[in-house]
Design a protein around this nucleic acid. Structure first.
Length: 510
DNA sequence: ATCACTTTTCG
DNA sequence: GAAAAGTGA
């Protein structure tokens, strides 16, 4: 009467919809036992924080609630994965271990390898299923479009299959409880993470909020509602890119051409889809080049010396640089775990180009204050904004210009930097001294120019130029041919039509 | 000539 | 991204 058991090892995929592990268990006709492990070695990592552990706890709590409606439950463990799996195996001799293919940092990769080795030793069939278009260990970027088409665009999200779980298994799972961790206390500033919250967020974006996406995501005052807010769900796997992609495509197809609002919706949703696709481009780069967690993709920057002044680092981290928008963003992140892309890019640019801090030095803190921390996205964006990828122009964000452009009334600044509560916007923007708020820790223009010159000097060395092409071919975008443009078209030439941007042109984000 | 806006180039 | 260059009223 007892069927063989497949353990579904839940990691960043605490959801029932579009879950290949559950579908596979059903296909094999196995009982399924979901298993989640809070791992001390991961909890202690310098890029992990309570914000992340709390997200996983919420996702898992949601999963448990849903599973119970299916008359099933999840085993919750606290300990190292191999050790806990072995202990479970002694109790329930499962034949299969199913999990999603995680593109993470070195710690999770090594952990996955150790689990695979344990499975081989024990004769447990271990299978990992991709949950994005990223190809494991694949480096051929020419085939990425094809991967996206076959895995995302031309494949429907998987429906929730029947879940078979014996009473014995269910009782065993139900008896396991959450470990007592500080991270599990509720913080109302943090965005909720669960499959149900993910679906609600997606729905609200597609029915109301999404209209303002285009034009709304740049300002920190509007981005909290105009942004999709799906990043946490994609990061922790309470939604998949495939679910989101198809939901957005359906919404686009359903737009009423007679509705004057439709044009705006269309622009917004297409801009969003483009970014959704870019996620995988970056994740693929980390999968192909895991060393970029520790060193720059381009060799010419590896011997670059950074000032790494500890006072400047602390001032940046705590939001005390004397640059109001930078400080507001750092404090907002620490409190909420979220801010829009542009503001994140600005604080990275500021730390690297103005404070002269190594991107590896600022990496752990940022990872910890991003509730949507996803190593593939984070590490690539970090290197890109630090200007060490090699082929993009070096982007230096001017915090004063950003303030004028996106928070000219200083609403966001005042919300997070109460010292400036009673100061007028003009006063703040012109950096007049305010008692109780520090002046600029370092001068912007001079320091930014100096760092840019350092970076360009590295890049322009003949050896560097030689390797740039090779690296670009391996890791750059495939979409647009890099045609050398005519310097100055003659007057007689018919006006060239403005090149319409495709979804995947080499202009990530803003 | 000037202004507002877009495109191109690039420490 | 920012600045310079271009465009068209």
């Amino acid at each position: 009467m007892t069927r063989p058991v497949a353990v579904w090892w839940v990691k960043r995929d605490a959801r029932l919809t579009d879950n290949a592990c559950l579908v596979e268990a059903e296909r094999l006709g196995l009982d399924v036992l979901p298993f989640f492990c809070f791992e001390p070695s991961l909890l202690a990592a310098d890029d992990t924080s309570d914000m992340h552990t709390n997200a996983q706890w919420q996702a898992l709590s949601g999963l448990r609630t849903t599973l119970r409606k299916h008359n099933a439950d999840v085993v919750i463990a606290h300990g190292e994965a191999v050790e806990k799996l072995a202990k479970l195996h002694a109790r329930v001799p499962f034949t299969h271990l199913l999990s999603h293919e995680e593109i993470g940092n070195e710690i999770t990769f090594r952990r996955d390898r150790a689990v695979a080795a344990w499975c081989r030793e024990r004769g447990v069939a271990y299978q990992e299923f991709p949950q994005s278009s990223v190809r494991r260990s694949g480096v051929n970027r020419d085939r990425l479009q094809e991967m996206w088409r076959s895995r995302i665009a031309n494949a429907r999200p998987l429906p929730v299959p029947a879940i078979h779980q014996s009473d014995t298994l269910r009782q065993l799972a139900a008896a396991t409880t959450f470990p007592r961790l500080q991270a599990f206390s509720v913080n109302s500033h943090w965005q909720p993470v669960s499959e149900a919250d993910g679906l609600n967020t997606l729905d609200a974006f597609l029915t109301h909020r999404g209209r303002s996406y285009r034009g709304g995501i740049s300002s920190p005052n509007t981005a909290f509602t105009a942004g999709s807010r799906l990043s946490v769900h994609l990061a922790w796997g309470t939604l998949t890119a495939r679910q989101v992609w198809h939901a957005v495509r359906e919404r686009l197809a359903a737009l009423d051409p007679d509705d004057p609002q439709s044009a705006r919706w269309k622009q917004s949703l297409q801009a969003f889809l483009s970014r959704l696709h870019w996620r995988d481009h970056f994740t693929q780069r980390l999968e192909s080049e895991p060393a970029l967690e520790f060193q720059t993709l381009h060799p010419c920057y590896r011997d670059l010396q950074f000032e790494n002044n500890e006072q400047l680092h602390t001032a940046w981290r705590d939001g005390c640089t004397g640059y109001p928008l930078v400080d507001a963003v750092m404090r907002c992140l620490a409190a909420t775990g979220f801010v829009n892309f542009r503001m994140r890019a600005m604080v990275v640019s500021f730390a690297c180009h103005v404070l002269h801090l190594d991107w590896r030095l600022i990496h752990p803190h940022l990872a910890r204050v991003f509730r949507d921390y996803d190593p593939g996205i984070h590490l690539n964006q970090l290197q890109m904004q630090a200007g060490v990828v090699g082929w993009n122009a070096i982007r230096v964000y001017n915090p004063t210009k950003q303030l004028t452009d996106w928070d000219s009334e200083c609403r966001f600044v005042k919300q997070w930097v109460p010292e400036l509560q009673d100061t007028t916007p003009e006063h703040i923007i012109n950096a007049k001294s305010v008692s109780g708020y520090p002046g600029p820790v370092v001068p912007f223009t001079e320091r930014a120019k100096w760092m840019a010159s350092q970076l360009y000097a590295k890049r322009n060395s003949p050896e560097a130029k030689a390797s740039t092409t090779a690296i670009y071919l391996k890791h750059g975008s495939r979409k647009k041919e890099r045609v050398s443009r005519r310097k100055r078209p003659s007057k007689s030439v018919p006006p060239k039509k403005t090149q319409t941007r495709g979804l995947f042109d080499d202009l990530p984000d803003e």
